[in-house]
Design a protein around this nucleic acid. Structure first.
Length: 936
RNA sequence: GCCCCGGUGGCGGAAUUGGUAGACGCGCUGGAUUCAAAAUCCAGUUCUCGCAAGGGAGUGGGGGUUCGAUUCCCCCCCGGGGCACCA
């Protein structure tokens, strides 16, 4: 019998299902461990070769933890709401629920093919009303809470209303977008609409008119992280800023906590840095500048309050609300023209063109509070409405952009920082000494900043302030295939919570926006328009359902609440989260935010959802090209071997992609087509049938090989199902891990899989011979064999703990090769090795387990084996003896030996004398367990 | 421009965090087996000089610390990723 993968896999998959082998245990006396994968969006294309990479790694870890006696939660589900299903519905009329279900079934089949140990009983689907009932519930909690800055937590909006009724909002310190102060009397006289508007400025889920990222092509609004370089992440369509009334989440209330939390979690530094940048905390001051001849003032944020004396003009963002109020009659036309120009520029235009200086003078003047001088107020689109206050004090001597602007429009430039002592300092660096700055003169910048803030606060024209780049998350999408907002509006437009959840999506058969450009849900007229109310026709974005799904896995069938306290108190949080780095700022930021909110609600016991995060790298492909002469010779196409190009100097070549199966060899100047490959190529491309192939002296046609995308046009697409057909699931899993470090991007090349395949067969041959005889014997293992075993256990243990699965596979191979060489078929050695293999190769090892039990004296081994460290130390033997670091001999000594070792064990003084050639020995260094070094 | 990673054979990658650089695998070369091929097995494989024994060089480049550096420090070059008028 041979190692027959298909037979094994079928048998054991059936066994798993019948016996519910991977059902999560309810045994709460065991310590828990939660291994989570980022759940996939079930697209029509199915899983590709890159998807399983992270799943395999997490599955290995889950199995490893189970063997160590943990109760492991390892679930899988589907992030099933989203754009592609809806686009597909618009094109074909197939309801998204139908196509999504088909895709889910397809995914399930593919996942099952990979031998994962998921507990499918706990699967979730974000588009299932039983699931999104709770997404809606959490949304309503956000809607009915505000953020109390003093207590630093979310609190019910009712308690805020009580305060308003008693004392207005003057003493309230809360995250808000409310500009005006009001008293209790005023609050009580507000109309229902006015009160609603005020409350919206405090709610954590709120509705507000704001500038949003509008993507015309997709017909919807996008969140900031869904926009890249002014284009939509999905589809790459242009995005513009547009004022719209939209739902938003007040994630900014949690900015500081989201930042602090990063210190307590085990994410890669790169990812933490990305999140920190996204949050973008900067310390400075807010300052009010009075306007001349105008009742209001301009609020600015600056990180350099020390340079106020140098503020010679101000700039507002074109969208700033003051623009229309302060523009003078004389400047009206200029400003209008500029607004028109700025409004027409898309985000992308603006980003592409940061060099050219544009702007317009409003005609208004503000007063510099420190110098008392009147300074002109301009508008320009280099000031962004979304950051800070949308207005700046411009210090052309201290800021490069302000300087460019001032020079272009001929505005005053007043130097305020003397940087002459700092040769390499750039404009804007926080070094130097203050000049031309009144009371700040001669102070170093570092001291001038706090001094300026103190003065600002003393003059009551502002205060020290921390500002964040993070913006509130836009939460409305003008789409059909998403969670409906559980909200209704009364005839005055005031929003109320829908009490009957889930609020299910109405059935539609046309998913396009309406003729008036309204979101598709407007087509469900009965659903939208009740007798006393209307419904929200926008739906929630993709990140709604994915922001809390890991909690639902803990208690997936609960119909009374999203998850029970009993479940969450046991499972706590995710111990290991594996997924792609592309979710670094989107999903990871939103779900951390929701988690912190639920912590405030007392729903979860932990402050952070994910203890440890591992990002798997991308799988790339190998691309092979042939060199084709652009000029034909005698009407024949000419392909030239890569190492013969020098004979064709001055001539141009085209690169023709060739199917990777025809190429032999491996690597940049080693890959080639041999004569067989050339024949295959000709058959594949009959148009080159009469082509001339200029091969090298070895009859090879050297190709140009690159690392790049896996894509049909490069003929390098590999389907995981095909690989599994040829080599088996175990082999596929191990090879994916063997390719390289989990976190790195690396190319897939099917050629290498033969090595893993050979290894598995070799491992198998330790147990059976070709006649299917069982080879194992109950003999006592030798010292050499035990050393192989304990070394393997130790290394594999370290490897798995460090997520170094590539070296882990290598260490299995070493152990197997060595045992094979010793012709070792001893049960006592192989038993623990089978257990170690289990995480990688579930089928083969379970078969072997089974056989152990069937064939005799060996008990089922369900515990992770531990290596014998003492044995390993005692059996350490040979270490090099070096002169000045260069190896000269080998000595035997134990870990704590000194120079006595040299004398006692291996080396005569004569010998040493010969090596050092008359020089005197300066010292002898013994590196424990490494070497003895004699320094001369 | 700023912020993160990273640079080791023909290729993917190891190196117990300062201790024999190149584990393991692919590829390649030679051999066994075969009528032959595939498959399989064995041996070799960093480069370089040498028939060989053996010598020399070597972890992007240059300098430094050290008995000893892929590893630590400084400067430079190259590649990948992220952010980008953030006041």
């Amino acid at each position: 019998m041979d190692y027959n993968t298909a037979e094994l896999e079928a048998k054991w998959k059936a066994f798993w299902n019948e016996n519910e082998v991977y059902k999560t245990s309810d045994d709460k006396s065991k310590p828990k461990y939660y291994v989570l994968d980022m759940f996939p969006y079930p697209s029509g294309a199915g899983l590709h070769v890159g998807h399983p990479l992270g799943y395999i790694a997490s599955d290995i870890y889950a199995r490893y933890k189970r063997l160590q006696g943990f109760n492991v939660l390892h679930p899988m589900g589907y992030d099933a709401f989203g754009l592609p299903a809806e686009q597909y519905a618009i094109q074909t009329g197939v309801h998204p629920a139908v196509s999504t279900n088909q895709n889910i079934n397809f995914y399930r089949k593919q996942l099952d093919n990979l031998g994962f140990s998921f507990d499918w009983d706990r699967s979730v689907n974000t588009s299932d009303p039983k699931y999104y009932k709770w997404t809606q519930t959490i949304f309503l909690k956000l809607f009915s809470h505000y953020y109390n800055n003093t207590k630093d937590k979310a609190e019910p909006i009712d308690s805020l209303i009580a305060i308003f009724q008693k004392e207005g909002n003057v003493n309230v310190d809360a995250a808000n977008s409310q500009d005006a102060d009001f008293s209790a009397e005023e609050w009580n006289t507000f109309s229902e609409i006015q009160q609603d508007e005020v409350l919206m400025n405090y709610r954590l889920a709120y509705r507000k008119v704001g500038f949003v990222n509008w993507c015309e092509e997709l017909g919807t609004v996008l969140a900031n992280d869904e926009v890249k370089d002014g284009l939509s992440e999905r589809g790459g369509f242009p995005v513009i800023k547009k004022p719209m009334r939209q739902w938003a989440l007040r994630i900014t209330a949690y900015a500081q906590r989201l930042l602090n939390g990063l210190d307590s979690v085990d994410f890669s530094e790169a990812l933490k840095t990305q999140q920190r940048n996204w949050i973008g905390r900067s310390k400075g001051a807010k300052v009010f500048f009075n306007l001349k001849n105008h009742y209001s003032n301009i609020e600015v944020f600056t990180t350099r309050p020390d340079t106020i004396f140098g503020a010679t003009f101000m700039v507002l963002a074109p969208e700033h609300e003051l623009v229309s109020q302060i523009t003078t009659l004389k400047q009206h036309k200029t400003v209008e023209a500029y607004l028109k120009y700025a409004g027409a520029r898309s985000e992308r235009d603006r980003m592409a063109d940061v060099k050219s200086v544009t702007g317009a003078f409003t005609g208004a003047f503000a007063v510099n509070p420190f110098t008392g001088k009147e300074i002109p107020v301009w508008i320009a689109d280099y000031v962004l409405i979304g950051y800070g206050t949308g207005a700046i004090m411009a210090v052309p001597s201290g800021d490069e952009r302000d300087q460019r602007f001032a020079m272009h429009f001929g505005l005053d430039i007043l130097p305020v920082v003397d940087q002459s002592a700092h040769q390499s300092a750039a404009i804007g660096d926080k070094v130097g000494t203050m000049i031309n700055s009144g009371f700040l003169n001669n102070l170093p910048v570092k001291e001038a900043i706090p001094a300026a803030i103190a003065k600002i606060e003393e003059l009551k024209i502002g205060e020290g302030k921390v500002n964040f780049r993070l913006r509130d998350a836009n939460f409305s999408r003008q789409r059909y295939w998403g969670e409906p907002f559980p909200v209704k509006y009364n005839n005055k437009g005031v929003a109320f919570a829908e009490s009957n959840l889930p609020l299910e999506l109405p059935s539609l058969n046309n998913f396009k926006p309406t003729a008036e450009g309204k979101a598709p849900l407007a087509r469900a007229e009965e659903w939208c328009n009740g007798e006393e109310f209307t419904r929200e026709i926008d739906t929630m974005p993709g990140f709604a359902g994915s922001s809390w799904y890991f909690l639902r896995y803990m208690d997936p069938h609960n119909e009374a609440e999203p998850f029970s306290q009993e479940a969450v108190n046991y499972w706590q949080d995710v111990d290991l989260y594996v997924g792609g780095a592309e979710h670094a700022v989107g999903h990871l930021m939103y779900s951390r935010f929701w988690h912190k909110f639920m912590f405030d609600m007392g729903w979860v016991p932990t402050r952070e959802p994910y203890k440890k995060l591992v990002n798997q790298g991308m799988l790339q492909g190998v691309i092979e090209f042939l060199y084709l002469l652009k000029e034909k010779q005698d009407d024949r196409a000419v392909f030239v071997s890569g190492d013969m190009l020098k004979n064709y100097e001055g001539q141009e070549f085209a690169h023709i992609p060739v199917h990777i199966d025809y190429v032999t060899g491996y690597g940049s100047d080693n890959s080639h087509l041999n004569s067989i490959g050339i024949e295959k190529f000709k058959k594949w491309r009959p148009d080159y049938d009469n082509a001339l192939f200029i091969t090298n002296s070895n009859d090879q046609l050297i190709t140009k090989s690159e690392i790049g995308k896996i894509s049909k046009r490069y003929f390098n697409v590999v389907n995981p199902d095909d690989v599994i057909n040829d080599y088996g699931t175990d082999c596929f899993r191990m090879y994916e891990m063997f390719l390289g470090p989990l976190q790195d991007s690396k190319p897939w090349d099917t050629k290498g899989i033969i090595g893993v395949s050979k290894f598995l067969r070799k491992f198998w041959s330790l147990f059976y011979n070709l006649d299917n005889d069982w080879l194992l014997r109950d003999e006592k293992p030798s010292g050499a064999e035990l050393k192989i075993l304990h070394t393997a256990i130790k290394k594999v243990h370290n490897d798995i703990q460090n997520f170094s699965f590539n070296t882990c596979v290598a260490h299995f191979m070493v152990a197997t090769n060595e045992l094979k060489k010793l012709n070792c078929h001893k049960a006592e050695i192989l038993k623990p090795l089978v257990v170690l293999m289990a995480p990688f190769a579930p089928f083969i090892t379970e078969q072997l387990w089974h056989d152990f039990n069937e064939k005799g004296s060996i008990h089922k081994y369900a515990e992770y084996p531990v290596h014998d460290e003492k044995f390993l130390v005692e059996n350490s033997i040979e270490y090099p003896v070096c002169i000045n670091g260069k190896k000269r001999a080998v000595a035997t000594f134990d870990a704590n030996a000194t120079k006595q070792v040299i004398e006692e064990h291996a080396l005569s003084l004569d010998e040493i004398q010969k090596w050092i050639d008359g020089r005197t020995v300066r010292k002898i260094i013994v590196v424990p367990k490494r070497m003895v070094n004699i320094v001369v």
